[in-house]
Design a protein around this nucleic acid. Structure first.
Lengths: 224, 224
DNA sequence: ACCTGAACACCGTTCAAGT
DNA sequence: ACCTGAACACCGTTCAAGT
């Protein structure tokens, strides 16, 4: 948890970073089941059990991986001094989405446990800063921040769950084509509204879709 | 997919239902890793590979399990003829939450793949009915339904991810106690707003929390 | 048609041993 | 202190064989 200091010993063949990079590469290439301890170890050139010198167990590797994806997200806040709090919240959400859709295999890991690491806390603190700057009182800001996190992570989870592929998200053209195909497969007699809705959704993908929902949530937050 | 008919043969030792019930019981008792094909088979008293007579692979078992949890959710719609569309949407969302928090282990399965089964479609169709009754035009209703699903599943996913336990969700008292403990662990110097927000959230759990967020989303939907 | 035993190619994790 | 080989108790899935 709290030992960033170097440890003595004969020699460290690896660093935590190398292990996490290998895990992420395997995750991107082959999905969650490809990121096994044994394959990570093989990728960095050690025996499987050598990984346990660096991490207590597989869950610790996954937590560290999630944390490393969160690191520096808040760098997008405060770039434009003209930007209002709402634009800043959107920038933060879009940055998080950008990072996670780049590594779809990591999304289930993020949803799999509590987000209580230092980088997650830092991200939450920035979000609360922005809501406070927007004039929201502490209780509303607290609930609002949670609501925004629910939206952002839920939207990303559904977005990556919708694409069958294991690796990286395909380009938007391909995803639109896939939705058109899904549109054709909805039985319109039994589910007329669903068929119509699928048609509407067919050309509405990715960032645009994400931003629309985020705007509705922010509308509800300032209205409530 | 579409073969509800009986199949001939010497004798069926099991039904799909028995397998799904066993899988759900194992999921509830011991979390996702307890619901292995081998343990499911042992629970229903057959050899591991006998399961493959009923389902193509483990993913098919999981899809069927998710579908079975969705079945009949829409029974809560139309009970109260006085209820407005918004109350009906809330009833539907609360029913889905009730079912999923009763089986936390199934939540990652629901987020793990596209929700395109017949019961999922039926649920989506009911939601679209309600939004149409609320006066939303088809394009807004389509996007709004998706937004609501994002919120509901995201909120449930975060709710079950926050409790470390494998089995059923503990009672609210226990969860409040856990949040108070989490409040004490946030370093207030480095993360003052997070510490304050954690204090706010400490007594605000479960249905009440879920409903507040849902109301904000609905506010944003009718405002936008 | 359905079930079984046996096997294959994997897992995460532990332990004793080497340096 | 760190790494290795070997082992343990598991996985999902396949295949040939039985009825």
């Amino acid at each position: 948890m709290t030992e960033p200091k170097r440890k003595p010993g004969p020699r460290r063949a690896l660093t935590e970073r190398e292990i996490l990079d290998a895990a992420l590469a395997l995750l991107d290439a082959g999905g969650p089941e490809a990121a096994s301890i044994r394959r990570i170890a093989a990728a960095v050139g050690v025996a499987p059990n050598a990984v346990y010198t660096y991490f207590a167990d597989k869950a610790a590797v996954e937590r560290a991986l999630v944390e490393s994806l969160l690191e520096g997200c808040d760098g997008v806040v405060g770039r434009d001094p003209e930007a209002g709090w709402r634009a800043e919240v959107e920038a933060l959400a879009l940055e998080l989405r950008r990072r996670l859709v780049a590594h779809p295999g990591a999304v289930p890991l993020m949803l799999g446990g509590p987000m209580d690491g230092p980088h997650a806390l830092r991200l939450g603190e920035r979000l609360l800063d922005l809501l406070a700057a927007g004039g929201l009182a502490t209780p509303v800001a607290a609930r609002g921040a949670y609501l925004l996190i629910v939206y952002v992570l839920g939207a990303i989870a559904l977005e990556v769950a919708d694409v069958p592929q294991a690796g990286a998200l395909p380009p938007e053209e391909e995803r639109i084509a896939a939705r058109r195909a899904a549109f054709g497969e909805v039985p319109a007699e039994a589910f007329p509204r669903t068929a119509a809705a699928t048609g509407v959704m067919a050309t509405w993908v990715g960032t645009e879709q994400f931003r629309w929902g985020l705007d509705r949530v922010l509308d509800g937050l300032v209205a409530g």
